[in-house]
Simulated scan of single mutants.
Amino acid sequence: MSCSGTIEKITSKSEPIFRSRLVNMVVNCIIKDGKKTLAYQIIYRAVKNIQQKTETNTLLVLRQAIHRVTPNIGVKI
């Protein structure tokens, strides 16, 4: 017998301070030894330094930095 209910799509949770999925994805990439709080501290410290050095939106700067380091061409192996 098949399920008659609908399946809800699971969405990733946004992080608590900036409410940005981008920050959450970066944190998940830099997790060290499974310590997510340490990864959040690293990101928040970096964002604080960006905010002190530039007067622009920190999430915009983070988004631009990630866009610049991603490859333009997809590579298939």
Rank of each mutant, 00 (worst) to 15 (best):
N49C: 06
V75I: 14
N28W: 04
N24F: 06
L62I: 15
V26P: 01
E55P: 03
V26K: 01
K48I: 02
N24H: 12
K76S: 08
K48F: 08
E55V: 03
I7Q: 04
K76D: 07
I30K: 04
I17L: 04
M25C: 07
I43V: 14
R68I: 08
R63W: 04
R21A: 14
R63A: 15
G5P: 04
V23C: 09
L38Y: 12
Q51K: 13
I42Y: 11
I73E: 12
R19Q: 13
H67L: 13
V23D: 01
I31S: 06
I66R: 02
I50E: 00
I66P: 00
A39M: 03
S20R: 08
L60I: 09
M1Y: 06
E8G: 08
E15Q: 06
N72P: 10
V61G: 00
A46K: 04
C3Q: 14
T58V: 10
K48E: 11
V47A: 11
Q64C: 07
S12Y: 14
Q41C: 07
V27H: 00
V75S: 01
K36Y: 08
I17M: 01
T54I: 02
T56N: 10
I50S: 02
G5E: 14
G5L: 12
I7L: 07
V23E: 00
M1T: 08
S4F: 10
N72E: 15
G34F: 01
Q52R: 12
P71V: 07
G74M: 12
T56E: 09
S20A: 03
K32M: 15
T54L: 05
V69A: 04
R21E: 15
F18Q: 06
R68A: 09
L62Q: 00
K32C: 14
G74C: 11
R45A: 13
I66A: 05
L60N: 09
I30V: 12
Y44Q: 03
I42V: 15
A39I: 03
Y44N: 07
S2H: 06
A65H: 03
L22V: 10
M1K: 08
Q64T: 05
T37F: 07
R21N: 15
G5K: 15
T11Y: 15
K36I: 12
F18M: 05
K53W: 02
R63D: 13
I31E: 12
V69W: 01
V69H: 03
C29A: 13
K53T: 10
I73Y: 11
M25E: 11
Q52E: 14
G34N: 06
